[in-house]
Simulated assay, not measured.
Amino acid sequence: MEWGLAGLGVPTLTRSGLLVAAWLGITGGLHLDGAMDTADGLAVPDPQRRLAVMADSRTGAFGVMAAIILLGLKTAALVDLTTGQWLAVMAAAGWGRWGQVVAIARYPYLREQGKGALHKAAIRPAQDVWPGLLSLLGLSLLFWGLYPQQWLLAVGIALGGNAIAILTGAWFHRQLGGHTGDTYGAVVEWTEAFVLCLATILQ
């Protein structure tokens, strides 16, 4: 999509905005909705009320701010990425979903029922975690092979993406004592945004 828009002469900022919009459309906004609900819940000082706030279908101010920050960071990072954009986009999407799988496998699920309960019940850590990790490391290795001069970006995305994915899930667990379907989505969104930002530093 990026190459096609560039070929049509679409300016960089507009291309980046359209790419983020398409990215959001492909997921149906599911993960972003979870990130917004999580932000609303974490904004509540009383830990006992956080899950109830997250379950509320209404979006609060903190949820809106989280969405603006996430979409803004992704768009800005794509504008600033002058090399290795395809690696950054694929890696961000991959590490985000891998971090979600790690959170599902590693941490308790906080609701008796919910959309995330199905994933928690079906998770198979050995079969679900390791293949994804190897695939993402292989992606960076492929990029390194194609562009040896950009080895720092390849290695940094591999190591940094892994760390970001794991630490993001761990942070939400520390705040709530576990995870919900909303925080699974938040792990995806924040990991994607941070990996893209990391790529701008490493390029």
Rank of each mutant, 00 (worst) to 15 (best):
V44Q: 14
Y184N: 05
R106T: 13
T82N: 11
L202M: 05
E112H: 02
S135V: 14
Q113W: 09
G132A: 04
T183Y: 04
T12I: 15
W190S: 13
Q149P: 09
R49L: 15
Q127D: 13
L78E: 04
L71K: 00
A158D: 07
V53E: 15
G161S: 06
G178I: 00
R124T: 08
V188N: 07
A193L: 03
R15P: 09
G96T: 01
L110F: 04
G145R: 09
L5E: 13
W130M: 10
Y147I: 15
L87V: 06
P148Y: 04
G7Q: 15
R124F: 05
W151K: 14
H179F: 06
G96S: 06
V188D: 05
L136M: 10
Q100N: 11
T200L: 06
W95G: 02
I201W: 13
W151E: 11
A121M: 05
W130N: 13
L202K: 05
V188I: 14
L71I: 06
G177V: 07
A21E: 00
Y147N: 15
D56I: 12
K120H: 14
A199P: 10
G4D: 08
D40N: 13
L30C: 04
Y147W: 12
L70T: 03
D37Q: 07
I166H: 01
L196A: 00
P47E: 04
P45R: 05
